[in-house]
């Protein structure tokens, strides 16, 4: 018998879907297997990778389509499925049994409210919704390492609107000391949030683990953002110099 409980979480960008799932995970005893997927963001995405780092025992499932999700549905446990803001919830193909629909939405967002079994009010009040959905744009950055002060400037310019009206920014970035950082920003909700992912420092060559940038916004100037990234990432030579420096430091401390 199929006893896997599927919890589908939907809501607009910045509503707090991931946040709500993290609250559920925090309350778990981890006796049963827990799964997480985030369809609509390609095989890999910032949330998927970040959740994997934050909860080593959570099984994150890279997914491209929802159908694939159901085909690989585990036999038991709990499965948190975070649905991208840009997918139409009414068209989601969900399995019949053991599904709970959770929407993080205000009562005005009738589309979500009608769909959901449970509606949770966002913890923060979000800016008014524009009539058109903003665009989602993902840039994979695996292997790229940023010059730290350049990354600060890049995030400042992106979030302040120099390359289009960015509503939401999520990213995982590699730094020359071998650390990886997650970055989270939602327009109207204050400062950019930084989280050290506490991964083992990568100090030999280009990091072979996923990193990337996700922007949700209007009129994004992608060519300019690409140029901005190119100006902010380190060349092989400079990266090698940094790594020599940090390796010596690690050895000296070790």
């Amino acid at each position: 018998m199929d006893t896997c409980q599927v919890i589908v979480v939907a809501g607009r960008w910045g509503a707090g879907k991931t946040h709500w799932i993290r609250q559920q995970l925090a309350a778990q005893s981890w006796q049963e297997a827990l799964f997480y997927a985030c369809p609509g963001y390609g095989a890999m995405g910032v949330d998927l990778v970040r959740m994997g780092y934050l909860y080593p025992r959570l099984q994150v499932l890279p997914t491209i389509s929802l159908e694939k999700c159901w085909n690989t549905l585990p036999k038991e446990g709990q499965f948190f499925l975070e649905v991208g803001y840009h997918l139409d919830v009414h068209r989601l193909q969900l399995p019949v049994a053991s599904v709970k629909r959770v929407a993080i939405a205000t009562p005005q967002e009738t589309e979500f409210c009608h769909w959901a079994d449970e509606v949770i009010e966002p913890a923060v009040s979000l800016p008014a919704i524009a009539p058109t959905l903003p665009e989602l744009w993902q840039v994979e950055l695996t292997g790229q390492v940023f010059d730290p002060p350049s990354l600060d400037e890049l995030l400042l310019e992106l979030t302040e609107g120099a390359y289009g009206q960015v509503q939401r920014l999520k990213g995982i970035f590699e730094l020359p000391d071998g650390q990886a950082f997650a970055v989270d920003f939602c327009l109207g909700l204050g400062e950019i949030e930084y989280t050290n992912l506490n991964v083992p420092p990568w100090l030999e060559g280009r990091p072979q683990r996923w990193s990337g940038l996700e922007l949700i916004g209007y009129h994004l100037d992608k060519a300019a953002v690409r140029e901005l990234i190119a100006d902010a990432v380190l060349s092989d030579t400079v990266l090698a110099q940094y790594q020599v420096h940090y390796r010596t430091q690690v050895e000296a401390e070790g």
């Binding site: 010059d147 002060p149 350049s150 400037e153 890049l154 901005l228 100006d231 902010a232 400079v238």
Partner: peptide, 9 residues
């Protein structure tokens, strides 16, 4: 220069 980005610009 405060950053590589500033330098390139």
């Amino acid at each position: 220069y405060p950053s590589q980005l500033a330098e390139k610009r």
